[in-house]
Design a protein around this nucleic acid. Structure first.
Lengths: 334, 334
DNA sequence: TTGAAAGCGCTAACAA
DNA sequence: TTGTTAGCGCTTTCAA
């Protein structure tokens, strides 16, 4: 018999202490099956006294199913993903499920490694960003048989079901809006060294529409690090001081765009007369800015909620793409 | 014999396919022990072909140890906690550990439930915010025997080790700074309906110092929802339009303070002549604002990193409180 | 180099 | 109402 002295108490220990069988302990603690009031009391007392903590690993192994959902995010350095995650978490919590998660920093290989790792916990489902994955990731997920939800993007071929919006269309819509306002010389400011494929898709849609209208992209600046207001401010300064001065700047997101606006405020430029600005996401903090930024509102929390619901559900998978839409919000900067 | 048709492949299945024992499969896949090149090849081939995914539940149950760390956060609606989480995640990822997490929304009862839930995964450690917990939570964690790190706060009695800063001192330091600049009538703007105990501690330290100097708090406004720039903007408008007009406002955090600044910019007020402002945290986005906000810089990522290191480590627990410090940053708003 | 046996903690199924 | 048995998938131990 092994030494149990430094072991966490198990149902066996409780059984011994309470003078019943281990099965009775199991029944009492789970409130299933029947047990005499007598036994119940003794078990509960013993469990409490020993400081018993159930071991879900055992339950999960036995049940061949866990209440876990794997969640993969590109980064935590962007509110957008915290909001998606918040939607997921809130939805899971209501159902007694737990998120296990990891962050890729926009690296497909890290994503692949994470997927492997997370799948080995036998989660009920997996939620991951975007539709582009490293070779093999797709197959691994498919083979694992877990329910999958891809979020953010719809422009591509989902593994199973995607919840999001067309990034290309969002770019096009922004371009149409800016063109309608009369701007002809466009700039682009991005981040993540171009590794954010969804931003690239928006830019592609934007550029295509701009060119089709006979207007042009005159300057682009993509920063290497995470997107941040300060980069937007710096990039805007660069573009406006450059040779090919744009009359409107499209930013990869609101943080960058707000930074651009801050540059203009600090320099005393008049927006949009001196330069027009447009962001992406419609984050809450835009409401507080002294000037309303033109942006495209995206359903971040909703993507998280829908994805979580999907992976928890056990109904059949209906559509491959669920378009949660976007909304162009014309502000005072265009 | 049970029907294995809809089961995920196990080592047993691979063994059968490769014509070796299950133990050999285990050895090959883990790269431990020895196996003939022949066996190795056959096993690897079969594993690949069957799309084998290891089941860590079994390993963890067997090993009586998991590579999981439980992480509890007050909310995801505040960058501060995403940054702490990022520090944790980054540190864990380097060691092949996974975070499992949950969000309390500043509710101690939810926290208690989460702790119970997360502990049942037998994590190696648990990281949680603050030093105040619902009755029983402390005992439950202690009894579980996992390594514990509390983050953010040092003003109180840690369960085991706390990594953070003195919130009370941060409040005092801010007050001293404002008093030195000559302000005498102070306002406070908070959020989370006062449930954020660390903000309350800062306010207590601030108030105490203000009063000791013979100055006073003339107006306070605490919003119910999450802190956001827009609340700061609204609250500032209220305080400045109120009867007891403060000459300086202390905000529970930078988001609120930046909102206050936006109000001033939008209204054409001169800061700090018309009103002085001070925030808390030193978030990156402050750099991009047209006016440098006075704030207290906190070591958010470091708290996450230190806490993660602590719970992963197996050395003895040294000190009960690890002060990671803070730094008052005098900006242009005071 | 390989395999057989035992057991991690729990619960479904069956038996008393 | 209570207990016994078996087994989830894996790895440690011991034996061949």
């Amino acid at each position: 018999m092994r030494d149990r002295s430094d072991h966490r108490p198990t149902m066996g220990d409780i059984a011994e202490a309470a003078g019943v069988s281990q099965m009775t302990v199991s029944r009492v603690l789970r409130g299933s099956g029947s047990a005499s009031a007598e036994a119940r009391a003794r078990v509960e007392q013993a469990a409490h006294q020993l400081g018993y903590v159930p071991n879900r690993l055992a339950t999960a192994l036995r049940d061949e199913s866990t209440p876990l959902v794997a969640v993969i995010l590109p980064t935590l350095g962007n509110r957008v993903f915290s909001e998606v995650l918040a939607g997921v978490t809130e939805t899971l919590a209501g159902q007694g499920m737990q998120p296990v998660f990891g962050v890729t920093e926009y690296d497909p290989l890290r994503e692949a490694a994470l997927v492997r790792d997370l799948l080995s916990w036998r989660p009920r489902g997996i939620i991951l960003p975007g539709l582009e994955h490293a070779k093999g990731t797709r197959a691994a997920i498919r083979a694992s048989g877990v329910r999958v939800a891809e979020v953010m993007d719809l422009d591509g071929d989902p593994i199973s079901v995607a919840f999001g919006l067309s990034q290309v269309e969002a770019g096009r819509a922004t371009a149409r809006h800016m063109l309608a306002r009369g701007y002809r010389r466009f700039g682009w400011i991005g981040a993540q060294g171009g590794r954010d494929l969804r931003a690239s898709k928006r830019l592609a849609g934007f550029r295509e529409t701009v060119r089709a209208a006979g207007a042009q992209m005159v300057a682009e600046r993509v920063f290497d690090g995470p997107s941040a207001m300060v980069q937007g401010r710096r990039g805007t300064a660069m573009l406006l001081d450059g040779l090919a001065r744009p009359d409107a700047i499209y930013f990869a997101n609101d943080d960058l765009a707000a930074g651009g606006l801050m540059h203009c405020l600090a320099e005393g430029l008049t927006v949009p007369r001196d330069v027009a600005l447009a962001g992406f996401n419609g984050l809450g903090f835009l409401e507080a800015l002294p000037v309303r930024l033109t942006t495209v509102e995206t359903p971040r929390r909703e993507m998280g909620i829908s994805a979580a619901r999907h992976v928890m559900g056990d109904g059949p998978v209906a559509e491959a793409k669920v378009d949660l839409g976007f909304r162009l919000v014309a502000g005072e900067t265009s």
